[in-house]
Design a protein around this nucleic acid. Structure first.
Lengths: 213, 213
DNA sequence: CTAAAAATACCAACAACTTTGTATTGTGCA
DNA sequence: TGCACAATACAAAGTTGTTGGTATTTTTAG
């Protein structure tokens, strides 16, 4: 009987639900990785582990309630076989040592490249621990905002317009700038608002500031 | 000859110019404290010290360019007599030890109470070093956003409205909620925009998110 | 008490974006 | 070839906030 190529099962833990979704989408394209479940906080993941035992956990450090390190400690205490890769938003290098000390198998910044994330996941999945840490690359496809935005499936033009909106352009200005009718811009904007599920320009501004900046 | 009560001369270093202004205002009300100068970054303060020698420096940790700890090191190397109190935005307790190790005389979170800041400044000014650190209190008058907002001299009502605007209330909703005519709300809003020097609701949203949240 | 500031109220013209439609043209994929 | 989707364009009616006024009452500080 042939051994089926087992997928690497993963649970993602992050309080930014929308970030999880993006990351999930990204991982779904990988044939050897399976996102088993997701959790929004420490409590949730610890509960999940009673029934779901993944090969790996992607664990955000900055979470409300129980923080990532405490979760790490508990996971490693009760399920030492589960590999844990810590995710951190900022370049807080000082936390790497803490992660290492807590038994994490890897550590990656959220602005790392998609390819880097995947290679780290695979290395760790094969049993290698990914220390010491290697500098992450900025402006990559794994940039948090990109991953995050993907889930909304904006078209090229819509994404482009979003960049202008971000810079405070009015519809008229965008129309001038892109040689479009203001009506076209309005249509695109309408679709953006719909896809992002926003009700007014203020919400859009908040959205942009919170996720896209 | 009677010894005149010498004022404690202070230089504030922080890259948020507007925060400096607020803090400056706050300290100006204290008869025994004199804000001698301000600096926006490490380079600036190090330049200033050639000509201005304060009794104390309030030094932000998170700054672009040279960070607070490097500044601390240099200040303590060349001007060991100057007392340094580190300011940090977040509850990053792990940085306290680093500050202590670097020779800082005090460490305070930006969300500490005004009274706490003052007492720490006075203690340190008298030669006591303020370690170990004592937990800061939230929702105080020294909350960064409060200090920051002060400089704009919004009235009570205006400040109140700003809270609703922050929560995405429309003018009409605010009017209903506060039993005011919508015209009144519009007037207040107009004045807020003027005082904050903002041009449109998007800028207001950005302002709120960046400073007031 | 009195002057200044704050709070209230009103108005009209305007600017910007929303909503709900319709409709045409191009383009990639099966 | 033909379907789905993207991109384009238009329009009317509505909502929300802006601007630049004026004006009255209430509160506060000297």
């Amino acid at each position: 009987m042939e051994m089926a190529t087992e997928k690497l099962s993963v649970i993602i833990v992050d309080d930014h639900t929308l970030f999880i979704n993006g990351l999930c989408m990204l991982l779904q394209n990988e044939p050897d990785i399976e996102v088993m479940n997701m959790a929004a906080n420490g409590k949730e993941i610890l509960g999940l582990l009673h029934t779901n035992t993944p090969d790996m956990i992607l664990l955000d450090i900055n979470m409300p309630g129980i923080n990532g390190f405490d979760v790490l400690k508990k996971v490693k205490a009760y399920y030492p076989k589960i590999k844990v890769i810590m995710l951190s938003t900022y370049n807080e290098e000082h936390l790497i040592e803490k992660a290492k000390a807590g038994g994490a198998n890897g550590y990656i910044f959220k602005n790392a490249e998609k390819s880097e994330l995947l290679s780290v996941m695979r290395l760790v999945g094969q049993g290698q621990s990914w220390f010491p840490y290697k500098q992450a690359v900025v402006n990559s496809t794994f940039d948090e905002s990109d991953v995050f935005l993907k889930q909304f499936q904006l078209t090229k033009r819509e994404t482009e317009l979003l960049q202008f909106i971000k810079q405070n352009f009015t519809n008229q200005q965008m129309a001038n700038h892109l040689n479009l009718s203001i009506y076209t811009v309005e249509t695109h904007r309408k679709n953006i608002m719909q896809k992002l599920n926003l009700k007014n320009p203020v919400e859009l501004t908040k959205f942009i500031l919170q996720y896209n900046l």
